[in-house]
């Protein structure tokens, strides 16, 4: 199997005053080498927790209750070394982060150290990981900055506050690629940016994928971002992947009532407006989840079985999996 990351039966809970928040429930998925996988879901669906879980940066209140995360490092095509991510501690974990798997966080605009020039942000990262220094580092950083369509001359000596939101986001993307990670995780990479800036970030990401060799996992509530960038899409609802498939299948013949509803709920510029409709109800409380299929209170196809048993992912067609008892009538 040629996946760079496999997540198996992962469950993550947070302890809160009101009870246990079941943010991720028994989730399994793979990121194939070289592909871009989009995790799509609404706020509170657990998708950010999933990203943080992979880089082991969960807050102290979170607990991984079950599952495994396996990362496969490619050795110049000569086989892969498997790393058990959840077993990593200390130095091993430090080496895994950024060198193998880097993450660009959602609050990207605040992720740079405000008192360091961009040059020093690169130097800091390189030093902490025993990577290049001096001129070699400078060359590598400039190369990356050019790849994200920034003018290295202008940016190199700037402080973060001197750059616009879109420029900071691109600096972060360049910085995340500094140690040549094989997997890049982006959490809401275009949220809170203006339309033209979003377009620019999307174009940069597309270009980077063509020029560098890495896999991409991005997390977003924005369906159009997935339509634009992803090879495969996984829909997340109430802490569970409810459907996964290649991007065309998910958008053209989605099988899960939630994916169908989500696609119908987003107006587009070119589309007609007649068929649009919202999903009734609202996303569930992760502390007090409904019984059976977590989508059943909002689902047009829900029957008695849905209120009782939770469906697991099953094959619809090769590569297209859905967790729904009634997907045959949904299509």
């Amino acid at each position: 199997m040629n996946s760079v990351l496999s997540v198996q039966n992962l469950s993550i809970e947070y302890s809160a005053r009101r009870g246990r928040v079941q943010a991720i429930r028994n989730v399994s998925f793979d990121v194939q080498r070289g592909e871009a996988l989009a995790l799509i879901g609404e706020s509170g669906s657990g998708k950010t927790t999933l990203g943080l879980g992979v880089v082991q940066l969960l807050p102290a209140s979170a607990q991984i209750t079950q599952g495994a995360i396996t990362y496969r490092r490619d050795h110049n095509g000569a086989g892969a070394i498997e790393i058990d991510v959840l077993g990593l501690r200390g130095n091993g974990l430090r080496e895994f982060r950024w060198k193998e798997c880097a993450m660009v966080f959602q609050s990207a605009l605040n992720a740079l150290n405000p008192v360091l020039r961009i040059a020093d942000q690169f130097a800091d990262t390189a030093k902490a990981h025993g990577y290049l220094h001096g001129n070699a580092l400078r060359e590598r950083a400039r190369h990356l900055l050019t790849l994200v369509r920034l003018d290295p001359e202008r940016v190199w000596k700037s402080f973060p506050h001197e750059l616009s939101g879109g420029m900071r986001q691109r600096v972060l993307i360049a910085l995340s690629l500094l140690l040549e990670p094989q997997l890049l995780i982006l959490d809401e990479p275009t949220t809170a940016l203006d339309i033209l800036t979003q377009r620019n970030i999307m174009d940069v990401l597309k270009e980077l994928r063509g020029k560098l060799d890495f896999s991409l996992m991005f997390i977003s509530h924005d369906l159009s971002l997935a339509a634009e960038l992803a090879d495969r899409v996984a829909t997340v609802y109430a802490g569970k992947v409810v459907e996964v498939g290649d991007v065309k299948t998910i958008f053209k013949s989605p099988a899960h009532p939630y994916s169908i509803g989500l696609i119908l709920a987003v107006p587009t510029i070119t589309g007609t407006h007649e068929n649009l409709s919202s999903i009734p109800g609202s996303p569930p409380d992760l502390i007090d989840l409904p019984s059976g299929c977590k989508f059943h209170p909002r689902c047009p196809l829900a029957d008695h079985r849905c209120t009782r048993d939770e469906p697991e992912l099953e094959d619809v067609s090769p590569g297209h999996r859905v967790a729904c008892w009634n997907w045959r009538s949904a299509k």
Partner: peptide
């Protein structure tokens, strides 16, 4: 420019859109 920059929730349309 704005209209051409907006991505669409349809992979065929959005990837063929002229920018």
């Amino acid at each position: 420019v704005l209209l051409s920059a907006i991505p669409e929730a349809n992979p065929d349309v959005t990837r063929k859109k002229s920018r």
